[in-house]
Simulated scan of single mutants.
Amino acid sequence: MIATSRAWALRAGPGRTNPILPCSRTPQLLHEVRCGTTKTSKRWNASHPPPVGQKPPVSATTIPGPSWLWLEPIYEPFRAYGRVQRRRPYMTQFISSLVIYLVGDFVAQSIGPPAVTEDEEEDEKGWLQAWATERDWARTGRALLIGGAAAVPGYKWFLWLSNSFNYSSKTLSLVTKVTVSQLLFTPLFNTYFFAAQSLLTGMSIPDTIERVKKTVPVSWVNSCKVWPAITAFSFAFIPIEYRSIFGGVIAIGWQTYLSLLNQRAAAEEERGHSLEEAKSHPARRREEDRATGEEKCAA
């Protein structure tokens, strides 16, 4: 007759090499085998390796699918920017601001009338030389100086704004942030931009004040059509390390608009000065004629 423990080993099935256990636990093991609650029956034999899942084919990483792996080359530059932004935020903001103002100034000069000299033929130049000749590099230098000086203060402002006005209601927090930014930051920044443009071109303080009066109200009204929605979307959905690059893409178009508005105001001021000079010429001629007549009478 087969021993009870040996009979249990045969019931466990072929391929099992379970040792013969003491007879004191035989009734308990028989009960576990009948009820299907034994733990040893769920173990794998050490001689047989556990099942291993199959790896996906290599082509799965290159074919568009639900995981959007084909967008990885687009995501990687933004991830790299986020890593650099977390390590060196001030330097990243400074360089980003220079790039934004440079591109904005180039776009504004491309839209506006080019400064082409009349004594040179465009056919004799290459496209790069013609492009470089048409650029007003002094204007570009002013834009880079203004943008670089405002990079870190602007970053600190939005960093403070993101950490402030955080109420229990997300809607109230978002509305407060957008309102504070639109009422404080936008008019101050536009005043700084137009005043710096005027002063760097050599204008006097009274003329600079007149430039600010003409441009800041118009720019603030137009900013209310664009920036509240962009600011709300940025605070609601964009992580803090990517907000600057998100706003920077929009700011390229905004800086183009501010540059065009500044040039338009400068052109109007030049026309006003030319009209004043034209009106003053007849009076000067009459005074000169009167002075020459008096000299003749005295002679």
Rank of each mutant, 00 (worst) to 15 (best):
I230P: 08
S173T: 14
F165D: 04
R83W: 07
P22I: 00
Q263C: 01
R88K: 08
I63T: 04
R16T: 14
M203C: 12
V249G: 10
L188Q: 07
G36S: 09
S164Y: 10
K170N: 07
D289G: 08
Q129W: 15
S47Y: 15
L29Q: 10
E134H: 13
R211V: 01
Y101A: 03
V152A: 02
K42A: 12
F194Y: 13
A298W: 14
P282G: 06
F106A: 05
T40A: 12
M203Q: 15
G253W: 01
A7T: 05
M91S: 15
V180N: 03
S259T: 14
D136P: 07
S24A: 10
S173I: 08
V175S: 10
G13N: 04
H31G: 11
F158A: 02
G248W: 02
P206A: 07
Q93K: 06
S110V: 00
R290V: 10
L145P: 04
F185Y: 15
R16F: 10
Q85M: 05
E134K: 11
R88F: 14
A143M: 12
I230D: 05
S110A: 12
N222P: 01
K42Y: 09
K279F: 12
L200I: 02
Q129A: 15
C23E: 15
A7E: 08
E276D: 06
S110E: 00
P239R: 03
G65L: 00
R142F: 03
W131Q: 12
E76D: 05
P27Y: 06
G202E: 04
P66F: 09
G147I: 01
L144K: 04
S96D: 03
P217C: 04
S198H: 07
D207P: 04
K55D: 01
C35M: 15
A143P: 02
V249N: 02
P66W: 06
P239E: 01
I20D: 13
L161R: 02
W220C: 04
Y192A: 05
L188W: 05
I74M: 08
R34W: 09
A46C: 13
A7F: 08
C35T: 13
Y155E: 03
T171K: 13
A9F: 03
W131C: 13
G247K: 07
S168N: 09
Y101F: 14
K213N: 03
K39N: 09
